[in-house]
Design a protein around this nucleic acid. Sequence first.
DNA 1: ATGCGAATTTGTCCACGACAAACGCGGGGA
DNA 2: TCCCCGCGTTTGTCGTGGACAAATTCGCAT
Lengths: 298, 298
Amino acid sequence: MTGLSLSAVEREVGLSRETLRIWERRYGFPSPARDTRGERAYPLDQVRKLLIIRRLIDSGHRPGRIVRLPTEALAALAATPEPTQPRRVEVVEILKRLQRSDSEGLRVTLAEMLRGGGLRRFVVDLAPDLLEAVGLAWASGEIGVHHEHLFSQQFAGVVRAALAEAAAVLGRGGAPCVLMTTFPGEAHGLGLLLAEAIFAMEGCRAVNLGVETPVDQIAAAAFAHAADLIALSFSSSYPRHHSRGGLAELRAQAPPGAQIWVGGGGAGSRRPGGVVRVRSLDEIASAVATWRKARPGA
Amino acid sequence: MTGLSLSAVEREVGLSRETLRIWERRYGFPSPARDTRGERAYPLDQVRKLLIIRRLIDSGHRPGRIVRLPTEALAALAATPEPTQPRRVEVVEILKRLQRSDSEGLRVTLAEMLRGGGLRRFVVDLAPDLLEAVGLAWASGEIGVHHEHLFSQQFAGVVRAALAEAAAVLGRGGAPCVLMTTFPGEAHGLGLLLAEAIFAMEGCRAVNLGVETPVDQIAAAAFAHAADLIALSFSSSYPRHHSRGGLAELRAQAPPGAQIWVGGGGAGSRRPGGVVRVRSLDEIASAVATWRKARPGA
DNA sequence: ATGCGAATTTGTCCACGACAAACGCGGGGA
DNA sequence: TCCCCGCGTTTGTCGTGGACAAATTCGCAT
């Protein structure tokens, strides 16, 4: 038990082995011991420090500024940078159940909240606040990654159930036909699901491909489904440049008649021509109305 | 469309970048083109060949013997064990709709098939065949990635709906409490969903965290949920050694009283002590019965 | 056939250099 | 004063090649 191997740390911390090696070269940390074979053996305290660093980077800090810092300074950085902005009662309720890992209660509570105000209000009003609060709670160490996973699962389950119910009433949906997905590397699908709900309630035919579809495949799918719209979701953690190039590529390959809509926290202001930005979930409804007015066919 | 990058191939095929490089050095295949920057750009046909090779290795062949072979010889090898086994009618039907990108028809057909034989039969009998057929169809170029995404979405939707319905009847579930997830890097969640359905029908309390939970978080979640079982799913494309180390680590960190069960095509025969392998989905039922007999509490 | 040691296969690890994209900072213009 | 553009810095990924331990297969003697 002298320490963890390079691959073990890669798995535990989620930093690639190449990154771990180059940090060692550049910043002098981590500084693993070596076993008889000359291979790295990371002591547990260094692994813990790496975990803190990883979390800080995910919430916006930069490696060069924090990797050299002592553990205490990192812990101080990780502690609540928010001046305790008051949270709405629903958010408090959900976070409480989440911290208790009350899986069933979480689901039931979310379902009740949805029923209370209806699907649309839940999606455009409560859901964004909830998602942000959970993200913040994670960044500040208030909850763990597994709590976030649990939330995502239960949240998605509740929305999907409501969506299925709504779809049974609304029928198959008509124009526009909306193809929905995310780019490779963007694994967050909740935003997509929320948008799907709105599109469905607006009477559109939404085809959700799930996350991480390669660009050429999105284009191919747009042809195959004769899509009028391609809707992409970008979380704020998605690297900007990826979206830039990918969108240009997609615009070139996709059917010329199909519009490309982007939304989510990572949908930057700079984007190639022919790509429409939808700022919020409730803007989707008016955007669809605009689209329909401009194209009165069918 | 010059070709895929090294990391893209790593992700698509499931062979590590180091393996890809050393094969190139040793066997002369793959032999990717180079872009202006000198970086590898794998043509699509080489990627397909790599996929066939990986499939063959998974079924017992050794790299040194097959990597140099031409594609036809590989196809012959791949076909040999199953001399053009006829596909069952359900599979043909689904593939047909998939190729037409008939999203709605796909969903309806799947739902009908599920209703016809019931959830259990659908999960243990038809689902594995469907998943394999779709994987093969993609590997052989018969369908595109976006078809596979569409299938995953509709398939998951149908199973989730049936699961929700069953859960309403079965109630909350009792012992054992099963925590379900996959390791980081394993993004396939369909197997997990199928297993969840079985656990639920067996009267267990299944808590599905979704995919890619870090090992320490799985352990933490097991404590938080007081889980009796930790169920992990590995697709056949998941690198073996990752599961080895991760499982040992998890065994050390998880509650000692909690059993660890692994399943899926990537759940190799070699695994650390204290980890149980569940070979197929319908073996889950008897495994649960065995667990209950051994632990008569509650 | 069977058991054991030698030889081969195979994937991971090491080191270091290079470079493009992204980021942050500072200066000039509206 | 604010915004935008250009430049230096930061940062992760990719390149090369050599080495070695663990696993597997082979060869040989019993």
